[in-house]
C-alpha cells in the first residue's frame, strides 16, 4: 500500500498554512496526526497532491482551563487528553471517551482537531463535542470564525469548514453534572456500533440539565434536543428515560454495515443510550 506522490509542507505558522491552501485549493489538505488520512492515501482512496503537516504550527497545541472554559488546541492528542489531570478533574467525560478511541499508539498520534474536523461519522469526538456544546474555531483567508459543534456537521465528510479553512482549536464550557461515554464496538480499534455521550445535572433529585449525543448512527453525529428535553424536570424515572431513548431513536438514521443491520443498530443505540443516561445520572 503506497500512496501517490505528493509535495510535503511543514509550515511554522498559520499564515504559512493558509497561503499553501490558497495556492493549491482543493489539491491541498492539512494533516494532524494522519491516522485517518494516511491509510486513505495508502489505499489511494484519498489523493492529496499537497500535504500540509500541522505539527510545527504555532498556537495549535496545548490544553488551557480558565474561567470555566476549556480550550483544546487542534493538535492536542487523545493521549494528552487522557493524561491531563486538570482536564480529567473538570471534564472527566473527555478522558472516558478518549480511552475508548482506537488503541494506545493511535491515541498518541490522533488529535482532537483531526478527529472533529474530517467529518467521519465513525469518529467519537464529534458526538462528544456536541454533547458538551463545544465550539470549533476556524481560520481562513477571510479571518477567524467560530462554529458550534452542533452546527458543524452536514453529511459524511461534509462540514461547515471551507476547503481553505483550518480548524485551530476547540473550546467548551466546563461541563456540569454527571457524565458518561458509553460505546459498543466489536474490538479495540473499531468504530462504534453505537456510542452515547451524556451529561446530566441533578438538583434535589431532579434533572436540571441534560445533554445527549450519539455517534456512528447517522451520517453525522446526532445531538437530540428532544431526548434532552425528555429528561428535564424528571427524576429520571423509567418513563423519562424511555421517552429520551424514543426521542433519540427518532433522530438517528443508522445504515447497515459489517457491524449489523439497521434494526440491530437501533436496538443497541437504545440500550447504550439508556446505560449512558443511567451511569451519568448515578454520577450526577
Amino acid at each position: 500500500m503506497i500512496p501517490a506522490a505528493f509535495e510535503y509542507y511543514r509550515p511554522k505558522d498559520l499564515a504559512g498554512v493558509l497561503s499553501i491552501l490558497e495556492e493549491h485549493g482543493d489539491d491541498a489538505r492539512v494533516m494532524a496526526g494522519g491516522h485517518s488520512l494516511i491509510p486513505m492515501m495508502k489505499l489511494r482512496m484519498a489523493e492529496v497532491p499537497h500535504l500540509i503537516d500541522l505539527q510545527d504550527v504555532d498556537g495549535l497545541h496545548g490544553i488551557d482551563i480558565s474561567n470555566g472554559q476549556i480550550r483544546l488546541g487542534a493538535m492536542v492528542t487523545q493521549a494528552e487528553i487522557i493524561d491531563h489531570e486538570g482536564l480529567a478533574a473538570v471534564a472527566p467525560i473527555l478522558r472516558e471517551a478518549a480511552l475508548q478511541i482506537a488503541d494506545p499508539q493511535v491515541r498518541y498520534m490522533g488529535t482532537i482537531g483531526g478527529n472533529v474536523a474530517n467529518g467521519d461519522p465513525g469518529n467519537d469526538m464529534p458526538g462528544l463535542m456536541q454533547c458538551v456544546n463545544a465550539t470549533f474555531h476556524l481560520i481562513g483567508p477571510e479571518g477567524e470564525r467560530s462554529v458550534p459543534a452542533r452546527a458543524f456537521y452536514e453529511a459524511a465528510y461534509m462540514t461547515a469548514r471551507e476547503d481553505e479553512e483550518v480548524l485551530t482549536a476547540v473550546t467548551l464550557p466546563v461541563p456540569d453534572g454527571g457524565y458518561a461515554y458509553e460505546k459498543q464496538k466489536r474490538k479495540i480499534g473499531d468504530y462504534a456500533t453505537a456510542a452515547a455521550a451524556v451529561q446530566i445535572v441533578k438538583e434535589d433529585g431532579v434533572c436540571k440539565a441534560a445533554s445527549i449525543a450519539m455517534t456512528n448512527l447517522s451520517d453525522t453525529p446526532v445531538f437530540s434536543e428532544d431526548a434532552c428535553a425528555a429528561l428535564l424536570g424528571t427524576a429520571l424515572d423509567d418513563a423519562a428515560v424511555k421517552a429520551a431513548v424514543t426521542a433519540m431513536l427518532g433522530d438517528i438514521d443508522p445504515s447497515e454495515d459489517n457491524r449489523g443491520p439497521v434494526a440491530f443498530k437501533k436496538h443497541v443505540a437504545g440500550v447504550i443510550l439508556r446505560r449512558a443516561i443511567e451511569r451519568a445520572w448515578s454520577r450526577a
Partner: peptide, 16 residues
C-alpha cells in the same frame, strides 16, 4: 457469533 448475530438469536426467540 458476532454481536449482531447473537442479538438476532435473542431477538428471534422473543427475548427483547
Amino acid at each position: 457469533h458476532d454481536h449482531w448475530r447473537i442479538w438476532r438469536t435473542a431477538n428471534a426467540l422473543g427475548l427483547h
